[in-house]
Amino acid sequence: MKHLLSASDLTRDEAVHILDTAGQMAATQAREIKKLPTLRGRTVVNLFFEDSTRTRISFETAAKRLSADVINFSAKGSSVSKGESLKDTALTLQAMGADAVVIRHQASGAPHTLASSGWTHGAVVNAGDGTHQHPTQALLDAYTLRRHLVGDRGRADVSGRDLHGLHVAVVGDVLHSRVARSNVQLLHTLGARVTLVAPPTLVPVGVEAWPCEVSYRLDDVIVDGKPDAIMMLRVQRERMSSAGGGFFPSPLEYSRGYGLDARRLEALPEHAIVLHPGPMNRGLEISADAADSDRAVIVEQVANGVAVRMAVLYLLLAGEQSTTNRSAE
């Protein structure tokens, strides 16, 4: 693995290996001294063209716990129309000797462009690009699902296991969601069945080629599909007033059709868990009852995010060693 640009770049074995490595990383995080010397002397640059404190802090924490030097480079405010700045910034980072560039960008494909342009020789990690991909989010979701739903609900060792046989419903603004795209691909790779649920206006034309099912009716999916997990996507209120009169008539109507409230939570199978990539719009796609219930693993997703990102940085920057270490175990 040279870069991590898309969830579709990962084979089943590679994805499972990342999850297993994340498990080892998580184990070290329970210790009093959390810092590992693994990436001492290596430089990780967080290159954020789009504001996301949560994701930046998650990557920053992951890199620091591996003892890497971290440079935060916020290029916020540089609009897409000034595309040259990606190139110039990348060349600057190259001059600074970045070993890995974690990039968040509002333009779909920007990490791809960065990785294939020759502007930087470092490993490129996509931390979310436009409406395209957010592979580490999908990995942390898969990690969370595996922890809770595989191997006797986390009581047995889950390393080496995938998500075979699980059914995951992904609900909300699929059209604009890089989280949905990444999850559909990764969950499919890991053997899970995925159902996307959204109003038809928020499902992309061309979705028929995706390895998943699509439904416009959340209640039917909950009752008939009995999902093991339900992942609620953030819905932006602005979508209501965008081009063409909006994607749905009102927030209230959206919540009624697609929000996760106490009633729907109750209708889910008893073991089912609730995920959300955050930040949540309480009262829109998820009610306070659902968000705060003991079925919700939303806070845990944040902690798992650090472990998964540690694993990704570790495998990209110290990649070969990891395989050796594993076989020696």
């Binding site: 779909s108 494909g109 690009d129 436009g130 409406t131 395209h132 991909q133 890089r178 795209r181 992309p204 034309v205 061309g206 979705v207 028929e208 080629a209 995706w210 081009a243 063409g244």
Partner: peptide, 24 residues
């Protein structure tokens, strides 16, 4: 023009995967 605001590429299977705004 209204159907193509912000459009980046042909709207279909590939645009859906790439997350680029479609030009139907």
């Amino acid at each position: 023009p209204r159907l193509t605001e912000g459009s980046q590429m042909h709207e279909g299977v590939v645009s859906a995967e790439l997350g680029l705004a479609g030009w139907p």
